[in-house]
């Protein structure tokens, strides 16, 4: 009868293992894994392009979303991944009918998606070309020009000194 006993034991352990099969461990994407990076934008003096110059009362409207962002200093903007460019409206003195000035800017970029792991999937990284920024000309542009400071928009390697690399500068 040991043969029957052995087979029951085997069957039992097989079924135990089989029930384990049904449980799949949930993969967790840890928070410290770098995600898709944002564009970091700074405002500089047109006469002195290495000096940061705060534009003042600045609001940003991403074209395509009904939202108004209020920004100061160095700005981080998310780029669109469903198309190859993103448009923003940079609005000075929003709400003030006399001094309000809106400039529309298109930012073009190349994109590459990089595999992280099973839990996180893919993240993107971008690259700015030399003619990546198009400033829509209207009768009164407050943003005069742009400078491409860092073409590679990628996650910050741990260990580098800079906390935030500025990719793009808008001169006014």
């Amino acid at each position: 009868m040991t043969a029957i006993k052995n087979s029951i034991l085997l069957l039992g352990s097989i079924l135990l293992l089989a029930s384990y099969m049904g449980c799949e461990k949930d993969d967790i994407c840890l928070a410290d894994i770098p995600a898709t990076p944002s564009l970091v934008l700074g405002f500089f003096d047109i006469d002195n392009p290495e000096v940061l110059k705060d534009p003042g009362n600045l609001s940003i409207r991403p074209v395509g979303i009904d939202t108004l962002l209020f920004a100061r200093g160095i700005i981080q903007l998310d780029l669109r991944t469903d198309q190859e460019f993103t448009e923003f409206e940079f609005i000075l003195n929003e709400g003030n009918s006399e001094t309000e000035n809106t400039d529309r800017i298109q930012i073009h970029y190349d994109r590459e998606d990089v595999y992280i792991n099973r839990a996180c999937g893919y993240r993107a990284r971008f690259q700015l070309g030399t003619t990546s920024v198009v400033i829509t000309q209207d009768e009164n542009n407050w943003i005069k020009d742009f400078i491409r400071i860092e073409p590679n928009i990628d996650f910050i390697q741990p260990g580098t000194n800079e906390e935030t690399t500025i990719h793009l500068g808008l001169l006014h």
Binding site: C29, A35, T36, P62, G64, I65, T67, L77, D78, R80, T81, D82, D113, I116, C120, G121, Y122, R123, A124
Partner: peptide
Amino acid sequence: YILYKNNPLWPDV
């Protein structure tokens, strides 16, 4: 696939 983003501005496509 949907890209991994932290607090994205734009909807996930």
